[in-house]
């Protein structure tokens, strides 16, 4: 027992030393760039490492949920060490801007960059789409040409989609809200709930698997997940190859579009490196890494897509003001609440 007690005291004494040593990483030096990223480390770190090596800038990274990171930046206030905020959804970028957590980007952006905030508070790095995915053996591909078709009575009990807590669905409904108005969006949400094959659960991949296993015939999922499945182990590939992508609303507004994007933090200490990173992320190298490793659509139109993406085909996408999608997120959720979409 004595031994345990002395071990105790020793460790207690050591704790602050150890903590101080590790937290020494927090010092803000000019050649360091501090990033809060809502993108998972594995999906962003390789690019950041390349940037770090090329420009001799030390990158410090914290990943986490977008809103939680924004709340952290907010409570840290003007002493916040964060220079760059990276997120996977336009809603969060809009929210960061409206909470005064960002500042205008000063980097010279390439001409093709159209997906950005009007005051340059954020810029898109990649785009992602949310098409309809069907089992071609059980569903006639011609019977679905739009999101609106999903609520046809013939699809009762045949549609799988994840929870409305998920940001991709919130953005999807928010975008519809802008283009179709509240009444129609509520009617559509109710129609969706009517046609659900099961209570929404699991992630996007689970919906695709459910289509193949026969739980449902139709799903809505981001291309990025399907593409990843088509490049995974053999069993998963076999599942993913059994479904077909339908690009909805091609004759009118286009498929739902979202972005992953980047902002310079309001109280950034190293705006120089921050803007440099943004320029770097929009260069061909980085853009083609996104297209080939993450299977996201690059914003640079000159970059060739990965074979998986090419195989899914080309499409027309929505062209609405993305900040608005972010602003209407809450309202979209309320509509889904009312429709009973959990």
């Amino acid at each position: 027992m004595k031994k345990i007690a002395s071990l105790y005291i020793l460790s207690l004494l050591c704790t602050p030393l150890w903590a101080a040593n590790l937290s020494a990483d927090n010092r803000i030096v000019e050649s360091e760039l501090n990033i809060y990223s809502a993108r998972k480390e594995a999906l962003i770190k390789p690019l950041l490492d390349k940037f770090s090596a090329q420009y001799d800038v030390k990158i410090n990274l914290v990943t986490g949920k977008a809103d939680a990171l924004l709340a952290r930046a907010k409570s840290e206030g003007k002493f916040s060490p964060v220079d760059i905020i990276i997120t996977t959804d336009v809603g969060r970028l809009a929210r960061a801007k409206s909470q005064s957590l960002t500042q205008p980007i000063t980097a010279t952006l390439p001409d093709y960059v159209t997906l950005k905030d009007q005051e340059s508070h954020w810029v898109a790095l990649t785009t992602r789409n949310r098409p309809i995915i069907i089992n071609p053996l059980t569903v006639d591909a011609d019977s679905i040409t739009s999101y609106e078709d999903l609520i046809k009575p013939e699809f009762k009990g045949r549609v799988c989609i994840r929870s409305s807590s998920n940001i991709y669905n919130q953005s999807l409904v928010a975008a519809m809200l802008i283009q179709k108005g509240e009444a129609q969006t509520l009617a559509w949400s109710k129609g969706m709930v009517e046609n659900f094959a099961r209570r929404p659960k699991g992630g996007d991949r689970d919906q695709i698997k459910a289509v193949v296993s026969g739980v449902c015939d139709i799903a809505v999922a981001n291309t990025y997940y399907l593409a990843a499945m088509r490049n995974a182990d053999e069993t998963t590939q076999a599942i993913a190859n059994k479904v077909k992508v339908i690009w909805p609303n091609q004759s009118n507004r286009g498929v739902h579009l979202n972005i992953s994007g980047i902002s310079v933090a309001k109280h950034a200490k190293n705006t120089l490196a921050a803007n440099l990173l943004i320029e770097y992320m929009l260069q061909k190298d980085a853009q083609s890494w996104y297209a080939n490793t993450n299977h996201e659509y690059p914003v640079d139109p000159s970059i060739e897509w990965s074979d998986t993406l090419k195989a899914m085909g080309t499409f027309k996408h929505e062209t609405i003001e993305l900040n608005q999608v972010g602003e209407l997120n809450g309202q979209a959720l309320r509509i889904m609440d009312k429709a009973g979409w959990r």
Partner: peptide, 9 residues
């Protein structure tokens, strides 16, 4: 996830 220092996993 939210509170950890930079580069600490």
């Amino acid at each position: 996830l939210i509170l950890r220092p930079f580069n600490f996993n």
